[in-house]
Amino acid sequence: MADEKFLKDELKGFVPTPTAADIIRDVTRGSTVLKLGNVQPMTTETKKFPVMVSGPGAYWVGETERIKTDVAKWIFPEITAKKIGVIVPCSKEKLEDATIDVFAEIRPYIAEAFYKAIDAACLFGTNSPFTKSIYSSASDSGAIINEGTNDKLDLDISDVMALVEANGLDVNGFAAGYALKNSLRKLRDSNGNQLYVTGVDTQTLYSQPIEFSRTGAWDAKKARAIAADWKYAIVGVRDEITYEVLREATLQSVTMEDGNPLSLAENDMVAIKATMRIGFLPVKDGAFAVLAPKAGA
């Protein structure tokens, strides 16, 4: 095609729109926070999001009596989008390929790196640019229970849910690490029915969706599971992904067979640096509660 662009001629810029949209969809499918949270589009670096923290009341009214008025309480937290980046090494021959084909091939690697970093930062504050994480929000409100508080895991989880419910909120989903799956499969109610149910597209616990965060994102030392009213976990997503081709860099995080870092020039390779912008803020501490590992574990 006459308008086809090749990587060697387009060494930096925006990832082609269709592929960028595919990458963002892959990130959303892989990220626990993006699947459960309140995801909002961002077109600028900062954005204020209206959040109603208490609604208007209704009153019983007698004949000819004036109806009382009440005002809903709103807050307008401001979220700032932060840059997240990944570098994917590839052969120098990729420079001869069409830009859209290159990104279609490395798309899974970009998406996986993004969603692991997003979950780690938003859930636990790991390497995070954000002021708060879901774990720190629960910690600030004292909403943490250790596994083993009761003699059964399902009762521990119920108590964690109660911490959210005590604030007048409903748990509408769970996040957990993969290590919890085996324990959940063994849970039964008093009639012998499974409490943890797996379907074709959904997994539920206490009839609420549960998402398992990928290995590398979940901090098993801090939490076994998180129960939350996830509409108070606001995630702002900018729909553009930028890229830059690196040809001379040394990648300290990539070790070659000789034990030395990858030098793109010496190893006759290139690397593609992709970046996107994400904003995050848990806006209500009482909306999050954590089931922590057993004391002393």
Results as ranks from 00 to 15, higher is better:
residue 276 M to L: 15
residue 173 G to T: 12
residue 216 G to H: 03
residue 232 Y to T: 03
residue 220 A to V: 02
residue 265 A to F: 15
residue 165 E to S: 14
residue 240 E to C: 06
residue 188 R to H: 09
residue 215 T to C: 00
residue 180 L to T: 01
residue 163 L to T: 13
residue 132 K to I: 00
residue 154 D to F: 07
residue 233 A to F: 02
residue 246 L to E: 02
residue 234 I to L: 04
residue 202 T to F: 11
residue 220 A to G: 03
residue 216 G to S: 05
residue 172 N to W: 11
residue 157 I to Y: 10
residue 218 W to T: 07
residue 178 Y to L: 11
residue 233 A to K: 03
residue 146 N to E: 08
residue 197 V to K: 15
residue 171 V to T: 05
residue 231 K to L: 13
residue 181 K to N: 07
residue 183 S to D: 12
residue 247 R to Q: 13
residue 216 G to Y: 05
residue 222 K to T: 04
residue 241 I to C: 05
residue 187 L to R: 09
residue 206 Y to L: 13
residue 221 K to V: 04
residue 255 T to V: 15
residue 131 T to Y: 14
residue 166 A to I: 01
residue 262 L to F: 05
residue 156 D to E: 01
residue 200 V to P: 01
residue 148 G to E: 07
residue 224 R to D: 06
residue 266 E to I: 08
residue 204 T to L: 13
residue 254 V to H: 09
residue 166 A to C: 05
residue 250 T to L: 06
residue 263 S to I: 05
residue 269 M to F: 09
residue 186 K to R: 05
residue 180 L to Y: 00
residue 148 G to F: 09
residue 261 P to L: 10
residue 153 L to T: 01
residue 142 G to C: 06
residue 225 A to M: 12
residue 192 G to V: 01
residue 183 S to G: 04
residue 266 E to S: 12
residue 170 D to F: 13
residue 246 L to C: 00
residue 255 T to A: 15
residue 239 D to S: 13
residue 161 M to F: 06
residue 133 S to W: 00
residue 262 L to G: 08
residue 267 N to Y: 06
residue 178 Y to N: 07
residue 240 E to S: 14
residue 235 V to G: 00
residue 179 A to Y: 01
residue 226 I to W: 05
residue 210 I to A: 03
residue 160 V to R: 04
residue 207 S to I: 10
residue 159 D to M: 12
residue 272 I to G: 06
residue 231 K to V: 15
residue 252 Q to V: 10
residue 134 I to L: 13
residue 152 K to N: 13
residue 247 R to I: 07
residue 170 D to K: 14
residue 162 A to T: 14
residue 169 L to I: 07
residue 139 S to Q: 15
residue 209 P to Y: 06
residue 234 I to T: 02
residue 202 T to M: 08
residue 223 A to V: 14
residue 153 L to Q: 00
residue 242 T to G: 10
residue 203 Q to E: 15
residue 131 T to F: 13
residue 227 A to M: 00
residue 267 N to W: 02
residue 274 A to N: 10
residue 196 Y to Q: 08
residue 196 Y to I: 08
residue 235 V to L: 02
residue 272 I to V: 15
residue 176 A to H: 07
residue 155 L to C: 08
residue 162 A to W: 12
residue 212 F to P: 03
residue 220 A to I: 02
residue 154 D to H: 09
residue 274 A to L: 09
residue 161 M to H: 01
residue 250 T to Y: 02
residue 168 G to F: 05
residue 180 L to S: 01
residue 208 Q to G: 06
residue 275 T to L: 04
residue 250 T to K: 11
residue 191 N to Y: 14
residue 241 I to D: 02
residue 170 D to H: 06
residue 265 A to S: 10
residue 143 A to L: 11
residue 249 A to I: 09
residue 243 Y to P: 10
residue 239 D to H: 14
residue 162 A to K: 12
residue 214 R to E: 03
residue 232 Y to R: 01
residue 183 S to Q: 10
residue 240 E to I: 14
residue 152 K to S: 15
residue 215 T to Y: 02
residue 155 L to G: 03
residue 240 E to M: 08
residue 232 Y to W: 05
residue 154 D to W: 01
residue 265 A to G: 05
residue 137 S to V: 07
residue 258 D to Q: 11
residue 270 V to L: 09
